[in-house]
Design a protein around this nucleic acid. Structure first.
Length: 472
RNA sequence: GUCCCCAUCGUCUAGAGGCCCAGGACACUACCCUUUCACGGUAGGUACCGGGGUUCGAAUCCCCGUGGGGACGCCA
């Protein structure tokens, strides 16, 4: 069993507790980010806990995917990862204590019988709930346990009064205990269930602020009741609303819920995703662009929006383009090189990848686009026939031929190339684009490029001569 | 069905009774810059879900309605 640390009772402790049944998606990443930032902001500790009690669905690959995602984003944890499957003896012990104390009891009702009763309650328009058949009570005689049936353990939920908490995002929430039933805390096979493990862990890991998804609001009153039965300190709760897809629909496995690592593959910078996610459902006045450090210094629970937020790819794109513009060249060079090599393109020394990046980084939205543009410098493009037809008219061909003839005689740098372009164009009495466009198309296969003189200067002279000669 | 949550431009949001005939950002449109396209700059249009209250005064507080979401498992 993993040992838990002793900790300062005044220290703020938050946690991120994913269940390893898939990758880390944007919703989970934002929950992790907020939880992490809150701990960082207050000099607290951020705990990572893997909730893998569902043996059938949890996989080591998913654990790794979550770790990879957090690593890519730079969300480091101070403690853990703790695995719930490694804490079974502890849960067992707490359940035994509760059984002994009478705050939990055995229930022998068969699963199909339970389902039958739920159906009936639903049919009668009532909320389906366990009816307390096996719950001990003063003056009540329990039936004798059926032979050969392994019982589940149920928590004895208070049946009167209300459970209330001041949610740090949503405000005060009250739920009547009469709405709750005696939930199962240990299955027939003895394994503890989610709501129970969370309670024991949050308690023993001394979590002070539970920052988690909105979908847990309904679990909160049950967890508080168990915490109180255990005599544990109840943490503060902050429930984050969910993130909807680009189309306003709920994110699901088959609908837009992509792994954060997919954003890496798609050419996004982690700081762009982080900035986007940080601003989604949280605000600091009119500030739109901020670093992780700045976010940590500003982050608070008071400015979290209680309503659901729709993911907007275009704004993410804008942020990514922003960070790309400001990124250091060596960093981009490594990132682009990796992408190029994955495509089987090996950047050579001469058209300098760094120089190519500096010329193009303000023009792209993603690293992949940057790689696309860079690739053209190393692999001869095949300009589309329609582009050639459009820009290589007899008139421009004459101009181009004249220009190419003089290319070997000038110094190979942008200023001289630019001067020759202007001079050639003037001599033929044409406008600049008449020469610039054919050069763009021949050199890159594209109509849109940076200034042609700067572009040409990046290539070795021979490459330019070769690509431009194709037309002659 | 029952319970819970939510509701400002297309989207993310500012706004905690007068500063708001509602501000910022993305997107959009126009213009400028310009060797094309971007980048950058400038300008512009678009929103307080509906109805009742409370108040001298409400986007802000209360109630009802409507709409959206979540939960109701021996899943997490």
């Amino acid at each position: 069993m993993t040992t838990l640390p002793d900790c300062d009772p005044l220290m703020i402790r938050t946690r991120f507790a994913p269940s390893p049944t898939g990758f880390l998606h944007v919703g989970g990443a934002r929950t992790a980010l907020f939880s992490w930032a809150y701990a960082r902001r207050h000099g607290g500790r951020f705990v990572l806990r893997i909730e893998d009690t569902d043996l059938a669905r949890s996989t080591p690959e998913a654990v790794q995917a979550i770790l990879d995602g957090m690593d890519w984003l730079g969300l480091d944890h101070d403690e853990g990862p703790f695995y719930q499957t490694q804490r079974m003896p502890r849960y067992r012990a707490v359940i035994d204590d509760m059984l002994a104390a009478g705050s939990a009891y055995h229930c022998y009702m068969a699963a199909d019988e339970l389902e039958r009763r739920r159906e009936q309650q639903r049919a009668e328009g009532r909320k389906p709930r366990y009816d307390g058949y096996w719950r001990p009570a003063a003056g009540k005689t329990l039936p004798s346990p059926p032979a050969g049936v392994q019982p589940v353990v149920r928590f004895r939920n208070p049946d009167t009064g209300v459970v209330a908490w001041d949610d740090l995002v949503k405000g005060r929430i009250e739920i009547a205990n009469s709405e709750l039933d005696d939930l199962v805390i240990a299955r027939a096979d003895g394994t503890p269930t989610y709501n129970f493990c969370v309670v024991v862990d949050d308690w023993e890991m001394a979590i002070t602020h539970v920052i988690r998804g909105d979908d847990h609001v309904n679990n909160t009153p049950r967890q508080i009741n168990i915490l109180q039965a255990l005599g544990a300190q109840v943490p503060l709760y902050a429930h984050l609303s969910m993130i909807l897809g680009d189309d306003g629909q709920k994110l699901s496995k088959r609908h837009g819920a992509v792994s954060v690592m997919q954003y890496d593959d798609d050419g996004y910078l982690p700081e762009a995703l982080l900035n986007y996610l940080g601003r989604l459902g949280w605000s600091h006045g009119d500030d739109e662009i901020f670093s992780l450090q700045q976010f940590c210094a500003w982050f608070d629970l008071d400015h979290i929006t209680p309503s659901a937020a729709q993911f907007n790819s275009e704004k993410l794109n804008w942020l990514n383009a922003h960070y790309l513009k400001r990124a250091e060249t060596p960093r981009l060079e490594a990132l682009v090189r990796r992408r190029l090599e994955a495509r089987g393109v090996t950047p050579t020394a001469t058209p300098s990848l760094a120089a190519i990046i500096e010329l193009h980084q303000a023009r792209v939205t993603t690293l992949n686009e940057l790689a696309d543009l860079a690739q053209v410098f190393y692999v001869d493009p095949q300009p589309k026939a329609e582009l050639l037809a459009k820009h290589l008219t007899p008139e421009t061909l004459a101009l181009l031929g004249d220009f190419v003839d003089r290319l070997p005689d000038i110094p190979w740098e942008a200023t001289a190339i630019g001067a020759l372009i202007k001079e050639s164009v003037a001599r033929h009495g044409l406008r600049m684009p008449r020469l610039a466009m054919p050069i763009r198309v021949l050199l890159t296969g594209q109509e849109q490029t940076p200034s042609v003189d700067a572009l040409m200067a990046l290539f070795p002279r021979e490459t330019v001569l070769r690509r431009l000669a194709v037309a002659a």
